[in-house]
């Protein structure tokens, strides 16, 4: 009979294969010298990356997505800072229900958010544009930002703020000189997470995209054409590397923040 340690060893092995199968196949096919995405592999090539360089419609989509992701990151972090600060520092009537409501998009199906925003925009007589996607993305990214920023604000010793005030500084300057520098790592992490989520979001973007595609919407369109698949694999590889680098950077800043405020690192990402 197998011991328990053996059971977990086998289980985790199989689980990790299952979990990583797509992520590993992505670069495998990206460098595979064949125009069909299937086994057996044919040989090594970087030509699919070169194809990406000359695809103009892709460049447009990338530009759109970058614009959306940067704007989303800035605004959802801004909203996140306000909400996280309010909920960790002040007690006000209805705090729990207000926070619950703001965090709701985290569990709501994205299609509901997409549909409801679509209805509003059409009813108000606006045109669908990149801005409608941005609004939707801010809505779903803000809860993630709040989750990260709340822990940053909670780690902040309140007497630091009082000390600054006591030493004669104004509240406004206290915010800039003491609070902001100490939660900065959290803000950087929040920006990066929101950026990453927005860059990859498809369901809402597909509902709200007007004539201009985002990167995932572009990919969706290309998935229908078998001859485009290898270059999509190359694109996916680039995105994967980019996402992971951003996440590692975000985690690095989060850890640095934890160290700076002098609190023991309890681990755990997000």
């Amino acid at each position: 009979m197998l011991g328990r340690g053996h059971f977990f060893k086998w289980y985790m092995g199989i689980f990790l294969v299952f979990l990583y199968a797509p992520a590993i196949l992505l670069p495998v096919f990206a460098f595979n010298d064949s125009s069909v995405v299937s086994f057996p592999l044919k040989g090594f090539t970087t030509k699919w990356f070169a194809v990406l360089q000359t695809t103009d419609s892709l460049h447009v989509a990338v530009r759109n997505s970058l614009m959306i992701a940067v704007t989303t990151a800035i605004f959802s972090t801004l909203f996140g800072v306000l909400a996280a600060r309010a909920s960790t520092r002040f007690s006000f009537p209805g705090r729990r229900s207000i926070m619950g409501f703001i965090m709701l998009p985290m569990v709501l199906p994205e299609i509901i958010i997409g549909v409801s925003l679509l209805v509003v925009i059409i009813q108000m007589g606006f045109e669908l544009s990149l801005w409608s996607i941005i609004l939707g993305h801010i809505l779903i990214c803000t809860p993630f930002c709040i989750a990260i920023l709340s822990s940053a604000f909670m780690n902040l010793d309140q007497s630091l703020e009082e000390a600054s005030f006591d030493l004669g500084q104004t509240r406004w300057n206290t915010f800039w000189l003491v609070i902001l520098p100490l939660v900065m790592p959290g803000i950087v992490a929040s920006l990066l997470i929101a950026f990453t989520i927005s860059l990859d979001e498809f369901i809402i973007a597909f509902f709200l995209a007007g004539t201009e595609p985002t990167l995932p919407v572009y990919i969706w369109g290309q998935l229908r054409f078998p001859q485009k698949l290898p270059s999509l694999m190359a694109l996916g590889t680039i995105l994967l590397v980019l996402s992971i680098s951003l996440l590692l950077i975000a985690d690095y800043f989060r850890r640095r923040g934890v160290r700076k405020t002098g609190i023991e690192n309890s681990g755990g990402f997000l």
């Binding site: 010793d157 007497s159 630091l160 009082e162 000390a163 100490l182 700076k260």
Partner: peptide, 11 residues
């Protein structure tokens, strides 16, 4: 004031 936790600005 001298705070119980000292409240030294860590940065």
């Amino acid at each position: 004031m001298v705070f119980q936790s000292y409240a030294i600005f860590p940065h």
